[in-house]
């Protein structure tokens, strides 16, 4: 946050704490941890999948990978992990939950987000940077972006084709819950959807990897806007609590 609105108390100097859930088979857990702690200067800790509590984290990231080997179906076993009970409660109470790639698949399997993710149209795993368009800034994940802004994040998935029935898709659009769209749809996702929000707008899932675009050495820092938006959103919510201490 460079500019503060006069009269609004922001605690943006205080780092917030991200919890990064580690399932057996998660493999982008460290990347998410490094992005928010090293590249963003926030606090971050890992949460083991059998934890029954999330501790005092301000936001939760379900990272990419192959939780439980993605056996059966991507995310289908992970949803039964003890930690997902706590994630559900955290989300229900308004906490921010970001699911990236396999994390998105787990959120969908868990029913925290609608629709499903199936095999890419070309039936192959695809790894490449893809251009995206920010469809809404009315979310704690994109508030600091500009509507229509173009972001480039890498994708790396074999099952990232987003599908849902027409009614669900219409509803997502009517409620302004499509956050990101592919400009050049790589996987056959319906209506070019790359990321969506929950009804309460505090849970977001996306297939591209914003955490892999948080360092100029990696070729892009476009992903920072997602995490910065989360930090601001948490800081704003935290104000009354902190000032009441």
């Amino acid at each position: 946050m460079d500019v503060q609105e006069p009269g609004v108390l922001l605690q943006s100097n205080l780092p917030i704490k991200f919890g990064v859930v580690v399932f057996p088979g998660s493999n982008c857990d460290h990347d998410a941890w490094f992005a928010v702690s090293n590249n963003l200067g926030q606090k971050a800790e890992f949460i083991w999948h059998d934890a029954t509590s999330l501790g005092d984290v301000d936001a939760v990231i379900l990272p990419g990978g192959f939780a439980y080997g993605d056996y059966l179906r991507c995310g289908a076993i992970a949803k039964f992990s003890p930690v997902m009970q706590s994630v559900r409660k955290f989300a229900a109470s308004g906490g921010l939950v970001l699911g990236i790639c396999n994390g998105f698949q787990i959120l969908v399997e868990s029913g925290l987000l609608p629709g499903a993710l199936v095999r890419n149209r070309g039936l192959k795993f695809i790894c490449k940077p893809v251009p995206l368009r920010v469809e809404t800034t009315h979310s704690p994940f994109t508030a600091e972006a500009v509507k229509g802004q173009r972001l480039t994040f890498p994708i790396a998935h074999g099952e990232g084709c987003y599908i849902a029935d027409d009614r669900t898709l219409d509803q997502l659009e009517a409620e302004d819950r499509v956050v990101l769209r592919y400009l050049d749809n790589p996987n056959g996702s319906m209506r070019d959807i790359a990321g969506i929000l929950s009804e309460g707008r505090n849970v977001m899932g996306l297939m591209p990897h914003p955490e892999r675009a948080t360092d100029p050495l990696m070729g892009s820092t476009d992903g920072l806007v997602i995490f910065r938006s989360m930090v601001s959103a948490v800081a704003q919510v935290a104000v009354p609590v902190l000032s009441g201490r």
């Binding site: 795993f125 790894c127 790396a156 948080t214």
Partner: peptide, 14 residues
Amino acid sequence: IWEQYDYTVRTNTI
């Protein structure tokens, strides 16, 4: 070939 490989995981690939 190489687009089928995840070459950016671990965020170290320069």
